[in-house]
């Protein structure tokens, strides 16, 4: 499977190929990681459809988008999975998935399931951390800097990030260039920097074939 460039994943997502028993409907920000897991594990049972990653900034679009995708695809697959956390939907996505009878990852957001939801929940003192993943480190300007208007009004950085203390880069892969990029993001936001190698966290267990 060829994964489109990030910009296309952000705007358009990724259509399903229609060649497996299980479909995972995912945020476009997870496309590279899920494709890597498929390749690494030889998971032929799994097909991937992604919704636009930029919905990360528009949580109100996630629930209707996921619902439409599930209804559109469900007859063509034995199983449909939803690879989203709550992602700012205020519990609505979990309610919708329960109503539709499809399983989603039990986590508030991808930061939590990449680190491992239990592990993430075990440091509630980390409330002043701003998180990036591999995707968000690559797409920092498109997903953070420009949407917050910091390209036009950099002085607003204090209004947005004044209460944050550190940027934590939850790294899915070992990538020196991304590490440098994430460190630069922290500098631009005026935050201290920490890199935490998480790998794929809870994602493989969620996507693995089940008997």
């Amino acid at each position: 499977m060829i994964v489109p460039i990030d910009g296309r994943l952000a705007r358009n997502g990724l259509p399903a190929a229609g060649n497996a028993r299980t479909l995972v409907i995912a945020c476009g920000a997870l496309a590279h990681e899920i494709t890597a897991l498929k390749r690494l594990n030889g998971w032929s049972h799994l097909d991937l459809a992604c919704l636009p990653a930029i919905w990360h900034n528009h949580p109100e679009r996630i629930v209707p988008g996921v619902e439409e995708a599930v209804r559109h695809h469900r007859t063509a697959y034995d199983t449909v999975l939803v690879a989203y956390g709550d992602c700012g939907t205020g519990g609505k996505l979990a309610q919708t998935c329960a109503t539709l009878g499809v399983e989603m990852i039990a986590a508030p957001h991808c930061y939590a399931f990449y680190e491992g939801a239990d592990r993430f929940a075990a440091h509630p003192e980390e409330i002043a951390a701003f998180y990036l993943t591999d995707f968000l480190a690559r797409q920092f300007d498109a997903f953070v800097w420009r949407p917050l208007g910091l390209d036009r009004c950099p002085e607003l950085v204090q209004s947005y990030f004044g209460n944050y203390e550190k940027l934590v880069y939850l790294a899915q892969t070992r990538d020196r260039a991304l590490n440098a990029r994430a460190r630069d993001c922290a500098t631009r936001l005026g935050l201290t920097y920490e890199r935490r190698l998480t790998g794929y966290g809870d994602l493989p267990a969620f996507l693995a074939p089940r008997d």
């Binding site: 917050l148 910091l150 009004c153 607003l156 209004s159």
Partner: peptide, 11 residues
Amino acid sequence: LFVPEVLQAAN
């Protein structure tokens, strides 16, 4: 208007 503009107006 979007959040950046509202923040500037608020300031």
